[in-house]
Amino acid sequence: MTDNPKLRLRGVSKRFEATRANGPTTAVADFSLNVANGEFVCIVGPSGCGKSTVLNMIAGLDAASAGSIEMDGRTITGPGADRGVMFQDYALMPWQTVEQNIGFGLEYGTPGEGMTPAQRAQRVRDYIELVGLNGSERKYPHQLSGGMRQRVALARLLANGPEVLLLDEPLGALDAQTRLILQVELLRIWGETLERSHRKTAIFITHDIEEAVFLGDRVIVMSSHPGRVKADILIDLPRPRQESLRMSARFGELTDRIWTLIRDEAYRAIGGGSPANTPTQEIRV
């Protein structure tokens, strides 16, 4: 990786002011990360570790309290269509049909500037095709299944042509089977089979370790209170990733290693002790 990083976070912190219920909290502390162009980086960590806060700061939706966030060497100061966000519950406009939702940014935002209506419509059709939503163009979000809504959100994200994809637990609301299928789909749509330089830079937030290992080129493990980078793990699994990969020894090693890193915190988060220091009970049959 000789190029300059696409994204560079240096010593980024996020403090939230005191509210009536809580004192001031530091959600993210001294977070540094470089993401290369075309790289797929997953961030995992226990609930409330500040994963989403990091993503929102890159998106420009939240301002960092300290440190700097740069894209292509330029400091990020606010939201922009060069960084597309896919939200956990998709944030589709309920009053718009599938095709209107996908074309929302093209129609009303900066991505559609300089395009003719015909070009916009063509782009919307292309992405409907890509995510396989043909026949559902005129449906409203409430008429779609969770998996289909997820596809609409993905198509909307890509139709806007962002340089960086920021994905905030985009598969979190789906059932386990749909998730597995959509992980493979997501990699196909992302452009896994293309050369690296043609892929989009992606940051993917998840709490699912296997999902992170299956999707990512790298997995960033975060610790919480405050959120910090605990480990940065290179995922040396071949692309395109196949379903069978989940059974491989290397996949198991990587997920185990990450689980070991966050296990203690995960146990503490649910109020139990780590199994390491809890006496095991003998079970007699």
Partner: peptide, 28 residues
Amino acid sequence: DPKLVRAATTMGLPRWRIMLRVLLPASL
């Protein structure tokens, strides 16, 4: 839903357009 407004800002909509295209239809 503030998420809809946030989504619109990430798609590069200026404030007045967010009013017209998000806040008004959402509050209808």
